[in-house]
């Protein structure tokens, strides 16, 4: 059921139990970024911060490369990932542009076009 619903919408991963299990460590780390002190500590010592949360190899690699699609493939949930992205100064339009392989300007233009 969950596998089928994940595949049924193109370009979309429903965050279900499978993803929740896979992504727990990464999402837990991102949830910690509600605290400014934790955000600072991540910036100071990214490697040890990720180790403390027990990120998998794939998660650590995706975070190192700031690659959102790979973070989602590794179980990341965008509500939590957005908190990580904020540390890098990226907003949801930066994330959208990166995931769709376009520039932020082109991504924003596409959103505006949806209103016409």
């Amino acid at each position: 059921m969950s596998a089928r619903s994940r595949q049924s919408i193109p370009g979309t991963t429903l965050f279900d139990g499978t993803q929740a299990i896979k992504g727990y460590a990464l999402n837990k780390m991102c949830y910690s970024f509600n605290s400014a002190a934790n955000r600072e500590e991540f910036k100071r010592a990214e490697d040890s911060y990720c180790r403390r949360y027990g990120l998998s190899e794939a998660q650590r690699d995706a975070v190192r490369r700031r690659n959102v699609l790979d973070m989602i493939a590794a179980g990341g949930n965008v509500y939590y990932l957005a908190k990580l992205a904020g540390i890098f100064g990226l907003d949801v339009q930066d994330l959208g542009a990166q995931q769709t392989g376009t520039t932020k300007e082109a991504f924003k233009a596409k959103l505006e076009a949806a209103g016409r």
């Binding site: 919408i9 193109p10 979309t12 699609l69 989602i72 957005a82 959208g96 995931q99 769709t100 959103l111």
Partner: peptide, 13 residues
């Protein structure tokens, strides 16, 4: 709206 995945930016007026 959709924030995540290759379908990010999806809007359905």
């Amino acid at each position: 709206h959709q924030l995540d995945g290759e379908r990010a930016g999806f809007i359905n007026r």
